[in-house]
């Protein structure tokens, strides 16, 4: 036995098994990066899904209070001097105008804005929109203007004037494996509100894109379950100082989501991979890792 002969045979065998060094290097770096971030202690608040029981309890309590209030309101006049002609209690509790149209002023306590109340922006697929305004403000889902190819290299959508600061985002398709111009994907762009901070929803259709956001915006990554028994890993940020993850999870049905906050100016990547189910079991398998979802976030003031 001689070392060089064995060395040559091992090299030949390795080249046959894994011919692409560049792809392997990327996979190794990704694995190292994701592995390092995966060991970081979780500081994110509990996911809303885990609060399902509390939410249900609150909803039940609110519904019960509403029924009680309706019952009180339907009493004959004079039977309850404390609540004459008052609107439903639930309207008072939420601070909304009462049934009579008078503003509810009893509840002046400031409450944190729930996440669902933030304006949601779903980034449209790049090839569809060209120059026309792709969305409307404050209304239901509005399909973006569809025009025939050639697609514009840059998609820019800006919220029309509103009372508050104008949220805007710029989506620039990169050379990554983004969706092709034809057939045109279904419309997915919508503005539901013009209030800041803007909430931007990214799906797997936005893979390979560059998104420009403002500080304070919220970026939600929602990756639906793949078809082929694969599962998404939890989306990670390559720079937590720029795109800070506040919550996220990879669910057993294969889907994954994460919420990032645009913390400071700079660039950060949001990465996720599709892995076989055995990767999530114990002991886990070690499949070749690759990046299946990558979006670059550019945060500006």
């Amino acid at each position: 036995m001689t070392g060089p002969e064995l060395d040559h045979e091992l090299e030949t065998l390795g080249r046959r098994l894994s011919p692409r060094v560049g792809g392997a290097h990327d996979a190794v770096v990704t694995r190292a990066t994701l592995g390092a971030s995966g060991r970081r202690p979780r500081t994110a608040p509990p996911r809303p899904g885990r609060l399902g029981g509390a939410v249900l309890t609150l909803a039940f309590a609110a519904a019960f209070a509403a029924l009680l209030a309706v019952g009180v309101a339907n009493r004959p006049a004079g039977s309850s001097p404390s609540a004459p002609n008052s609107g439903p209690a639930v309207a008072l509790a939420t601070g909304a105008p009462g049934a009579s149209g008078a503003p509810a002023t009893q509840d002046t306590t400031l409450r944190p804005l729930p996440a669902s109340a933030l304006p949601r922006v779903v980034v449209p697929p790049p090839p569809v929109a060209t120059g026309a305004p792709p969305a409307s403000v404050g209304g239901p889902v509005a399909p973006p203007a569809r025009t025939a190819p050639p697609p514009a290299p840059t998609v820019i959508a800006t919220a029309p004037p509103s009372d508050g600061p104008e949220p805007s985002w710029t989506a620039t398709p990169t050379e990554g494996p983004g969706p092709q111009p034809s057939p045109a994907p279904p419309p997915s762009s919508r503005w539901t509100s013009g209030h800041a901070p803007t909430r931007i929803v990214l799906t797997e259709q936005d893979n390979g894109r560059t998104i420009t956001v403002h500080r304070g915006d919220v970026i939600e990554v929602d990756l639906s379950a793949p078809q082929n028994a694969m599962r998404w890993t939890e989306p990670q940020s390559t720079d937590e100082t720029v795109a800070r993850r506040s919550s996220g999870a990879a669910r057993s049905d294969g889907s994954a989501d994460a919420v990032f906050g645009a913390a400071q100016d700079g660039n950060a990547g949001i990465l996720a991979s599709r892995m076989p189910a055995c990767y999530f079991s114990t002991p886990r398998c070690l499949p070749p890792q690759r990046i299946d979802f990558q979006v670059t976030i550019v945060v500006t003031g």
Binding site: L10, E11, L13, G14, S18, A24, P288
Partner: peptide, 22 residues
């Protein structure tokens, strides 16, 4: 490549050699 080849030669399982090397 040499490490991948070495791992495949150690276990005989070429499917997992790349994973272990990476």
């Amino acid at each position: 490549h040499r490490v991948v080849g070495l791992v495949a030669a150690v276990t005989g399982d070429e499917g997992r050699a790349e994973d272990a090397a990476q």
